[in-house]
Structure formats: C-alpha cells, structure tokens
Nucleic acid binder design. Sequence first.
DNA 1: CCTCCTCGTGGAATCGATTACATCGACTGG
DNA 2: CCAGTCGATGTAATCGATTCCACGAGGAGG
Lengths: 339, 339
Amino acid sequence: MASIKDVAAEAGVSVATVSRVLNDHPSVSADARTRVLAAVEALGYRPNAVARSLRTDQTHTLGLVISDVLNPYFTELARSVEEEARALGYSVIIGNADERPDLQDHHVRNLLDRRIDGLLVSPTDGGSPLMLDAARAGTPMVFVDRWIPGVDVPVVRADGRAAVRDLVAHLHGLGHRRLAIIAGPAATTTGRERVEAFREALAACGLDLPDAYIGQGDFQAESGRRVTEGFLDLAEPPEVVFAADNLMALGALDAVRARGLRVPDDLALAAFDDIPWFVHTDPPITAIAQPTGELGRAAVRALVERIEGRPGESVTLPARLVVRRSCGENPTPVQRSTS
Amino acid sequence: MASIKDVAAEAGVSVATVSRVLNDHPSVSADARTRVLAAVEALGYRPNAVARSLRTDQTHTLGLVISDVLNPYFTELARSVEEEARALGYSVIIGNADERPDLQDHHVRNLLDRRIDGLLVSPTDGGSPLMLDAARAGTPMVFVDRWIPGVDVPVVRADGRAAVRDLVAHLHGLGHRRLAIIAGPAATTTGRERVEAFREALAACGLDLPDAYIGQGDFQAESGRRVTEGFLDLAEPPEVVFAADNLMALGALDAVRARGLRVPDDLALAAFDDIPWFVHTDPPITAIAQPTGELGRAAVRALVERIEGRPGESVTLPARLVVRRSCGENPTPVQRSTS
DNA sequence: CCTCCTCGTGGAATCGATTACATCGACTGG
DNA sequence: CCAGTCGATGTAATCGATTCCACGAGGAGG
C-alpha cells in the first residue's frame, strides 16, 4: 500500500509538502498542490490512520460499552450514537458486555489500549476499579443510561419517575391493587431506581410493595420467565407485573403463556423500555418509552465536549408512558406526555 | 500515559528488553523479567496498540459492514461475529450501512484507512468499485449473508431453497393458491434469490408467480407496509404474503391491521428470517430461520484463515422452516428440518 | 589455553505520518 | 540598492512500539 513517501516521490516534492496538501495547510503553491493531488490519485493513496494517530495522539474514535447488544433498546442507542459520532467526524467501536463485569472490563481495557479519544459507558455493575482509574486518569468519559454514583463524569439518561407514576395511576384506575415488579440487578442504577420509582408511585396511591412482589431479575428474558413463575406460584399472585426492561417482559409473557394463562385477563403486564415489537405482540404491551435516539446523540455531544476540553453537561430527559392493551381494556387512554 | 521508555528506565533495562518481556521472547533473564514486570505494575503501563500496529502492520481488528443494525437478524449476526473474533484474539469494528451504498462505502473506506486486518461484508448493492478494488488489492475479505457475484471472495451464507420449498408446500397444503412475495432489492443476492426460490417452489406445486404478486421492497418495514397495501388494493388480492425479511413482515402486519383485517383469516403471512419476537406477535409468525450464530462464527473463521494466509472456505448452511399460526391453523405441524 | 557458540542485552533503524525549524528566493519599502 | 519580510519548500525530529544486528561474558570442546 502506497505511503506518503511514494506520493512525494511521484509528485517530485517532499513528504512535508504532501502532508501540507493533505491537511490543507495554507502555504502550498497551486502548482505543488495539483502535482500532489495527481500523484495521490494515480497511486490510489490513502493516509494511514494508524500512523497519523500515533503522531497526533488522536484516533477520532469513541468507545461505546453497552450491557447487551441483543436488547433492542441498546441497539437503537448504539445506532444513534454512531450516527451522531459520524456527523462529528468520529468512528465508534462498540463493546458488548453481555451484563458481565469481566467482559465489560475486557472491552474497556481493549478500548483504552487502542487509545480511543473518549469512552461512553453504560456500566453493568457498580464500577470496576479499571473504569474508576480511567475516569480519574482523565480519560474523557460519559455515562449513558446507567451510571456509577460518586464518579465525576457527566451522565446522560432518562428520568422514568413521572412515567412510572403515570403507569401506576393507570393501573390503579383499572382496578389493579396487587402490583409486582421484576427488578433489574441491584448493582445497576437503573435496576435500583426503577424499583424505587415504582414503590413511591404505589405509595402515592396508598399501596405498598411487599418483598414477595419484588422479583430479582438480571435484565435478561430468562430471568423474567423465572421470576414470573415465582409470582404465579404465590398463594396470592399479583394482578400486574411490571418488568424493568423489555427482555424480562418477554420472559414474563412466555411464562404466562406456558401456564395457559392470558394477558391481561389472568395477569397484566407492563414494561420499562418501549420497542417497535411491542405494538405487535399479543396483546400489545403497555410500556414506558425512553427518548433513546436523543439520549444517544446527547451523550455523544457531551463526550465530544469533554474531548475538546470543555466541561460536558449531564442531561436528563423525561420518559413517557405508552398505554396499550396488556394491562386491561380502558376506553379512556391515559397517554400523558409528562414534562 | 507511561510508555515503554518509562518502563525501561524504571526497570533499569533497555526498551528492547522490555519489549521482549512483554512479547515473551525466550532470551530474557529471569532477573530482568521480574524487574520489568515490577516496573510495568508500578507504572500501570499498558502497551500502545496504535504504535504496535504501526510497526507490525497488524491491528488485530476486523471490520464488519452490515446493512442494518436495527434488523435483529444482523444484530444477532454481529454479536456472534464479535464473540468468535474475541475468542480468536480480534476486535471488531461494526459499520452500519443502513442499506445505503454511500454509507457502506464510507465505512469500508474508513475501515481500510484504519488498516483493519480483514473485512466482513454483507453488501447492500451489487458492488461498489471501492470494494472490488479492495478485494483485488488483496485485502482479506469474506462476504456474509449477501455477496457480490464474480468476486473471488469466500461467501458464508444460508441456503433457503429447501426451506422455501417446505414453506410453499405447507401453504399449498393449507389450501392457499394465490401467493405473493415482498421482495428485497434486486441489487442484493438475497433479494433476488428468495424470489427465485419462491418462484421455483411455486412451480413445483403447479402454481405460478404473476408480476402483480411480486412487490418491490427494500428490506425495511415501511416498504413492507406499502407493498402490502398495494396487494390488498388488487382486484384479486393474494391469500398469502411472504416477506423476504423480518422487517418487511412487520410492515405487512401493520398494513393488514390498519385496514381492520386479520392475519391469517384475511391474509396469511410468512417471513424470511426468524427472530425471538415472532413467537409473541399476534398471531405468532411462520418464518424461515437461518442458523445465524453459526453463520457469524463460520464467517470469522474463514476470514481469519485468509488473514493468516490460508485459503478460507465458503460455507453454506441450510435454513429451516418454523411453522407458527400466521398462515392458518393446521393440526399437523410441518416443521421439517431440511438437510 | 584458545576458539567458537550461546545467551542476554543494548543500540539503532523502522513503520508512516505531522510539524518545528531552517533555507532560499522574490518582493517591498526606505 | 540593501535589509527585512513573507511564502514555499525541504530536513529532520518525533510519536511508541518491534526487531535486526552487534557485542560481551561465560561455558564447552579440542
């Protein structure tokens, strides 16, 4: 593959001049410029990004470490991150942690070794020493969706509190009183937060959340199935199950089906995170939708701010309730778009 | 960030020795080794992958350019590619082409500039000059799912012919006679092939495929909707629609719903590509399932073979029919696993 | 005891770019 | 007419690794 030296030789100039032309530095004669451009064309020369990065100490690459690519929420997030990054002149390397802290560390280390300019993370756990060190060492970093408390890093996320309140009000309005939740891992902020929001919303309706109605899931479908089976085995099973993410909702749906029961007649179902498929399930699933695309874009913008030396702001956007049929029929739709 | 020089200074040896320790070269004394390792530990040194790549001309990185990340089929493919690559010591940079040839070219160019060791592509179109040049120039390359005819590059894909035959037989057995297809772009091999397989399978049942029953889609949901509306407006609408991918099936489902019609009573529906959600749609959708994970792994293995100088084999795996309820109820399941 | 290998090590070239500094010619203004 | 300036260009250092080659010490064999 042709290098800058070959181009210089072909054009009859020095490598410095070639470099100047390529980075359109002002002081190059029109003559030299055309000769260089012609040589570039003739040789099919493309600058070696590796060499350039070594010299300039910039890779124009962002790392994105997410917890589960197969989760449509994160897929959409990844997509919007890549789009915004591309618009700003960056590439993205995605690392899939599969909800496993060891894999997450593997990816963070790998990305750091590759000298990415900045790191976007949705941490699976409370924070590996590796990531904390990186943050402390000054690696530009932004948390998206989930975060690690006590680390001085901007956080871009959705606030689901209002939407959860709307959801519980909706459920209460439909006459449901025994509400259960399939929680995410306590090690994640979203895992904890959603339970808390749910508990508070219940309290506002005068209901409480017994321990038996809190099932411990791990954001994967299988755990949703398992927890739901546990709920159904209770002496007094809940009337509604709220899954803290879409995959666990899927597992819950499976579990209900497997028993020959029906949603919402035998058990109502709602989920955090809305995805296109929820419109088409049987029945369509009531969900809390995050502004995923906007989250991804805001996260990239914050990260690029940091990279370029500016502070980089935390952003919190509201989620909103989308009512469908999985919690029971109600002629009056409670589709409030919360502020 | 500490460099190899800092480590050498700290350990009181030369950089050459440090490098030898790090690449466990045999001729290093035990004493030097421990001193170097201690220095590495003390400084928290991590080798700079950029510098290493420049020198060795290897990035241990594969590029994967897919047509649409939001399509669960490709998401799963990407995941299995990343897993297998990681197992073999490679990282993966994913480029999302969004079915747009210009974006595809952008990613290919970007990946080439970054000097990835090999390229995995599922081309959106018949082949940009850029990609053909890269292949001719000897960039290790493998096509996955889709390919470009006449290019000497291994192809890893699923053969759906047998499964399509099974599907048509199943539909014929249910009494359907007017079968239509929502085709993918003619520029893609999978787009063309699936139509051909469908036509042949129909012929085997003594049916033919009128032009009016071939709708031109682009593998995106919206096109499935549009084409299905066209079918429903026909004087003699089809009884079954076969969508050449899962997103177009989703669009078709939407279109049917929007008219207040029902699947399968008013229009039966089947799709190429099976995804977890098809179990949960209303009704569950009959689909042709590709061995996606195996495809991804085989593609990576073939690519790594090429990178390491060996030939690298093309692989074709069978797809299989998964019967659900979207084509009508039939007590006898035709769930044949084809050879 | 000398020669020859082997082993461990360091010096320095190298990969392909960017960029500070030096140089040189032409032009301008006093 | 000469000093000073400016624009275009080249030379060489540099980024952080790998690796070829040379060198010295020590052991084996004649």
